[in-house]
Amino acid sequence: MAKIIACYKWVTDEADIRINSEGSIDFSKAKGKISDYDKNAIEAAMQAAQSIGASAVALTFGTAKAKLSLKDALTRGPAESFWVCSESAEKADGAATAKVLAEAVKKIGDYRLIICAEGASDTYARQVGPRIAARLDLPCITSVRGFEIQGDVITATRKLDNRTEVVKAGLPALISVLPEVNEAPIPGLKAVLDAGKKRSTEFKLQDIGLTDADVAPRTEVRDFKAYIMNRKNIIISADTNADKVKELVANLRKDGVI
């Protein structure tokens, strides 16, 4: 059966990140999660697969830690999952990630549509989708807020900075979707049980014809630190709400913003 491939990333949950007082970041309590926006990409693949009678599959590139993601991805509906496992994923940039995913897509084969989220919730770099399309020489539609497929043609609505566009492309194609494309449901118990029975395939880089050198990042991370916003952080404490408001307005006038 033809496939709709949803790409996703297993990321550190930013809600668990602790900022130390000297500005370093403590990841020790941080758990992994499927990137928030990728949940919408997976759901989009499910809906697309249903509409054209294809099979939705999930694809990720990650370190050994990403093994935890496979079942989570499958509970969201895909029939099968694929995981390119390499420790190089830890330092991979958009260039490396897109190469890996593109080569994995080729290996999976028989696809009609590739769906990525616009960006990952950790880096939100917004580059992997169009990079994959460039590598596979596929038509590419970014910033998609809605789409439908009829026969071999996808019609999508794109959100741009000052307008909306309706565009068409023939399949196979790649789209990158905004979170507003759908509401990703929370998987029920049955979906969780079903996921255990589904197949997951693990690839190593050599299985998809790549070497470690191919996936060396093109950018070098020199420094990484907590962002501390410099704000006044004044909590206005007066006895009544009316007094609080009065004090706030006085401050805003002093600052010259009203």
């Binding site: 930013e14 900022i19 950790d122 939100y124």
Partner: peptide, 9 residues
């Protein structure tokens, strides 16, 4: 990155 919690050079 991380939704703005960190800044990367």
């Amino acid at each position: 990155i991380y939704g703005g919690a960190a800044i990367q050079t």
